[in-house]
Design a protein around this nucleic acid. Structure first.
Lengths: 105, 105
DNA sequence: TTTATTTATCGAAACATTTAAATGTTTGAA
DNA sequence: TTCAAACATTTAAATGTTTCGATAAATAAA
């Protein structure tokens, strides 16, 4: 009468290997790690200009790193007029953590 | 009278950025992800020869990938005579997950 | 000891990533 | 409309990674 589903989609949702790889690559760079860590200080969102202050890189390089993080869905970009702000994607981080937990067996 | 420690060292232990980067890079490759996923099937340990069967790569390439995983401390190598077996390092995975959780804020 | 097996290392080719200079695009302000 | 600011894209150089063939090292077996 009742059906028990052992590994529900919710709350952990497993991503495919291609996405897992992409996120791992995005996380595999010191500058990008520094960007992500800024979210602990600047709680909710981070402005592109702030990243420019944070890293000793030219603007195109920073643009490149932010693109990597956005392409991996770790950051969600939001336009605010001429500026651009980023929000940390908690869900994708959770999914990535779930995949790692799954890997543990 | 009582002292509350907000972020105890135990059970989560935070690694430095260099190590986090190294692990991320090790995880950022399809072949190495496939190797790690084999541990779900072959529960406790994995033999080098088994990895050879798993991946369509030459022996030196597989040796290279296993080295990356060992250098990142994700795999612990154990010699067994002429053979080599690997054990998944649960602790490092836990530390990595803890760092990611920390990143979430 | 000699031979075969297993894994590691070296060297080079192919490919990917990082970085910055130059330039382009978008948007707000004058 | 014109100018300036914020961010993206293109291009090229430097560097790093992946891969394989050849070869070396370690160990087990004959």
């Amino acid at each position: 009468m009742f059906l028990f589903i052992l590994r529900p989609e919710y709350p952990e949702k497993n991503m495919d290997n291609r996405k897992f790889e992409k996120i791992s690559r995005a996380l595999g760079d010191a500058n990008r790690i520094a960007i992500l860590q800024q979210f602990r200080k600047k709680k909710d969102c981070l402005y592109c200009a702030e990243v420019n202050d944070l890293l000793d890189l030219t603007q195109p390089s920073i643009s490149h790193h932010l693109k990597q993080l956005v392409d991996a869905d770790l950051l969600i970009p939001e336009k605010e007029g001429r500026n651009l702000k980023y929000v940390l994607n908690q869900e994708v981080l959770d999914d990535y953590i779930a995949s790692l937990t799954d890997l543990k067996g």
